[in-house]
């Protein structure tokens, strides 16, 4: 192949139809309070990890719903499970169990 000096840019558009939503389904089954989330960001504002990394539980829930699993998988390990988000959440989302559910669901689905 000739050296063009550039590569075809990667498409960053979410292709909703091609993304699998299995991980979200598995997580929602384990922790149905995820449906209560209104994307307010209270969790991320108080989160220790979010102060120093790009981690955001609010974003992670949306990424799950859109099937952007790769980003969820790289992101979820940043949580230190302190539980501050659960105190802050105005909607009663069981955030600690949500994060554990995401981790367990990832393990389960990666074995399949």
């Amino acid at each position: 192949m000739p050296d063009f000096g550039y590569k075809i840019s990667k498409d960053r558009q979410i292709n909703f139809d091609e993304n699998s939503k299995n991980l979200f389904a598995e997580v929602a089954m384990r922790e149905p309070s995820v449906y209560r989330c209104i994307s307010c960001g209270t969790c991320a504002a108080t989160c220790s990890a979010a102060q120093f990394t790009s981690y955001s539980l609010r974003k992670m829930i949306l990424l799950l719903k859109r099937g952007e699993d790769k980003e969820v998988i790289t992101s979820v390990s940043r949580c230190m499970l302190c539980g501050k988000c659960q105190l802050a959440c105005p909607m009663g989302v069981n955030t600690r169990n949500l994060i554990l559910s995401i981790q367990n669901a990832i393990k389960k689905l990666s074995h399949v």
Partner: peptide, 9 residues
């Protein structure tokens, strides 16, 4: 998806 800052189709 403005809460993710990504275009979507």
């Amino acid at each position: 998806d403005t809460l993710l800052g990504k275009p979507m189709k």
